[in-house]
Design a protein around this nucleic acid. Structure first.
Lengths: 225, 225
DNA sequence: GTCTATAGTTCGATAGAC
DNA sequence: GTCTATCGAACTATAGAC
């Protein structure tokens, strides 16, 4: 059954081309060329460009989110009857994606670029796609943050979650911007170092939100800034 | 001289259409229609789609960055011989963009969406464009962070700056995701509230980076996480 | 399943009247 | 400056042979 291998080759090629040029910038011709097949065959396997795009996401997102949830549930199970440290929760959220973008063996690097682009894109197609794939996991981690950070409000847990994701997204894309702005002092590629700094930064931010209630903001807006 | 008004109308329309559909998704036809002019006139004023895109960015980026630098220099001048609080520095960085995206009177909302999309895009066109417009300001704020956060390394200042920007970018786009994930508890549109939380979160993260040196990371990677 | 060939659109850009 | 009209190229998708 050569069909499955062909499907995978097309998905790999599409992932790479979509990552480099975006949905509208990518062409079925260039994807076909990159996959070493002809254009008609892509339509045979995936119907339309739109569906192909969706399948590229679905293939990876399921895997990553499974690993995140697995880590998260294991953390809470092991910490019974207490709760795990915040650092571990944030690590469970961020490590799978950061690692995927830096895995030299697999094509995940391209998916990481693609996801980084789509996550902040404002066109309806991207927004719907991201929501479908990632809103479920967001709810679970927001809930976990609330259980682990004492005194944090629901709203602050949501803001904190979105901040963590906001920090992590450009890291996934490995733009090399940190290395550039630091004349090489920052190493984009070092998973351990990147992850440690991100976790440190994010947890400090979340705990600060937990220490400050909403009423403080509203009552003393001038002093709060 | 109706030419200038026409130019502005085309730029406004292009800003809106590019923000909604991206560079490749936007068409010269749709921009012309949105501007109330014909397609040929756009080429008369801006030569090509590529140049039009560049001019849309240049028009706003200069203005925003001027306001950021103005605030920053004023802060340091006023604090002499000391330095201003970190909170003020981060506010100077973030307020102009957050406000622009929420200004109901001007078209800045569309530019904010456009910038959010381009900032994390991985195609070469977007990367070059962002670097040209924003690398200069980045260097100045990284320098300011180093002067204001005691004990922070240059690398951590760069990571911290990029984290702050990473958090702010999705806020600019006003996707409504926070409101959605919190069942309305978070208000994306409230500039004051968004800015206060972001500043609180970011400053806590930066100070945490300042307290932890690089050597700690490398020596005890297990405990650090 | 995989190919070639092409239909049917839509694109960016230009020529030329006014 | 602004318009109409259109060129040539590129696009997605499909039809049909093998």
């Amino acid at each position: 059954m050569a069909g499955e291998a062909t499907r995978a080759a097309i998905l790999d090629a599409a992932e790479r081309v979509f990552a480099d040029r975006g949905f509208d910038g990518a062409t079925m011709r260039s994807i076909a060329e990159a996959a070493g097949v002809n254009q008609g065959l892509i339509h045979y396997h995936f119907d339309s460009k739109e569906r192909l795009y969706g399948e590229v996401f679905a293939r990876r997102a399921g895997d990553i989110n499974d690993r995140r949830i697995e880590r998260l549930q294991w953390l809470f199970a092991e910490a019974q009857p207490g709760v795990p440290p915040l650092e571990k929760v944030i690590e469970a959220l961020l490590r799978p994606t950061i690692e995927l973008g830096r895995d030299p063996a697999r094509g995940g690097r391209h998916y990481a670029k693609l996801l980084a682009t789509a996550a902040n894109a404002t066109d309806l197609r991207s927004i719907r796609l991201i929501r479908r794939q990632y809103d479920g996991i967001a709810a679970q981690f927001i809930d976990a943050i609330r259980r682990v950070v004492p005194g944090i409000s629901r709203a602050d847990a949501v803001w904190g979650y979105l901040s963590a994701i906001g920090i992590a997204i450009p890291l996934m894309a490995r733009t090399g911007r940190a290395a550039e702005l630091s004349d090489g002092a920052c190493d984009d590629e070092d998973v351990t170092s990147v992850l440690e700094r991100t976790i440190l930064f994010t947890c400090a931010g979340l705990r600060a939100l937990g220490r400050t209630t909403d009423r403080d903001f509203r009552t003393h807006p001038q002093e709060a800034i």
